[in-house]
């Protein structure tokens, strides 16, 4: 670590003339130091050359694609920022020339926006249309339900009132009218209550599905980082005593891995293992929509890694972000 700092300072000219002299003489005398420096400088040069190639590739691509191809990449704008353009049409070549500038209409739809977001959007749209269908069915059925209710109420009243009507004439008629009015009010209230209850259940169901979608997005977003765990070796399995499984298996069905991960997480004590297995466990809980346990695990990771601050601050902040997302 100290060597890397020194190498950085050397290549960026931050060493004093005296330190520089010492550095060069050490390169001549200390073979290990010289080998480390050579590996370092070749690595840094390699990073820069790779980045340079990337840049050349991008520049060549941008020079060679047509404006239409670029628009295809970006997707079309549902609300064009350019004046006198119909809102739903993609930008034409002529409009494209107007290029940079902002119009009044802020919301912009980008068809090539991240595929995950689009998937979620389409799921939500499907869900909405399903709810609308259910609602319209309920509304269609309501008048007939009301009709049946009125019929049964009327029949019940006529049956109970029939003997009394025979006995007393006009006074019974008045009482019967009052009862009818009260009964009408009751069935109206009960109908409204039923509609409210149905709406409440639909909203609850929608919210639950929404929460589950958020859990899935959080899992798939952070699970992508799991590839980093296997960096530098072939050891992609977790667990022992016949309970091991691969990271691929974890990604496809994380809920199965929870018992193994709990054991593993409880047994580790190095900050790196706490971060890796803790996050795997928390994400498995999230995928299983068990937010309560996920929050507990995330909080313990934060508490444990706080002792290793600032080296693990970024992991702590990542855990806080996940905690906020599932909070």
């Amino acid at each position: 670590m100290q060597n890397i700092q020194q190498f950085d300072r050397f290549i960026y000219g931050e060493l004093s003339p005296e330190e520089r002299k010492k550095f060069i003489s050490r390169l001549k005398t200390d073979k290990d130091f010289a080998t480390d420096f050579k590996a370092y400088i070749l690595t840094v040069a390699g990073i820069c050359k790779e980045a340079q190639l990337d840049d050349i590739e991008f520049a060549t691509a941008m020079k060679n694609i047509t404006p239409e191809q670029l628009l295809e990449i970006m997707g079309y704008r549902k609300h064009s920022p350019f004046p006198a353009q119909t809102d739903d049409a993609p930008l034409s070549g002529a409009r494209f020339d107007l290029a940079v500038g902002f119009g009044e209409s802020a919301p912009v739809f980008n068809a090539s926006a991240s595929s995950k977001i689009q998937e979620e959007r389409s799921k939500i749209d499907e869900e909405r249309s399903r709810i609308d269908e259910e609602r319209s069915k309920i509304e269609e059925e309501l008048p007939s339900l009301h009709g049946r209710l009125i019929y049964f109420e009327a029949k019940k009243i006529s049956e109970t009132e029939a003997p009394a009507t025979k006995k007393s004439g006009s006074s019974t008629k008045t009482r019967s009218a009052k009862t009818w009015s009260a009964k009408t009010w009751i069935w109206q209230a009960s109908s409204i209550a039923a509609v409210v209850l149905i709406a409440f259940i639909v909203v609850l169901d929608f919210e639950k599905r929404g929460r589950e979608n958020v859990d899935n997005v959080v899992f798939s977003f952070y699970a992508d980082d799991l590839s980093a765990v296997s960096r530098g070796g072939d050891d992609t399995s977790i667990g022992s005593d016949g309970q091991s499984f691969t990271l691929e298996a974890y990604t496809s069905d994380p809920a199965k891995a929870i018992p193994v991960l709990i054991k593993k997480y409880e047994s580790v004590d190095s900050p790196q293992d706490i971060a890796i297995y803790g996050k795997l466990l928390a994400l498995a809980y999230i995928k299983a929509h068990d937010r309560r346990n996920a929050r507990i695990v995330l909080q313990t990771i934060i508490d444990k890694l706080s002792a290793y601050s600032p080296d693990w601050d970024d992991t702590i902040s990542e855990c806080r972000t996940i905690l906020n997302a599932v909070g």
């Binding site: 840049d55 520049a59 941008m62 670029l70 990449i73 290029a99 940079v100 802020a106 912009v108």
Partner: peptide
């Protein structure tokens, strides 16, 4: 939506600047 708008305009501007020869050879993208 505004950030998305700006982001798209960057790529439009890059292509425009290429057409106008405003981009250096060793640009760090």
């Amino acid at each position: 939506g505004e950030i998305e708008d700006i982001y798209q305009n960057i790529f439009i501007a890059i292509q425009e600047n290429f057409e106008k020869g405003r981009i250096k050879d060793n640009t760090s993208w």
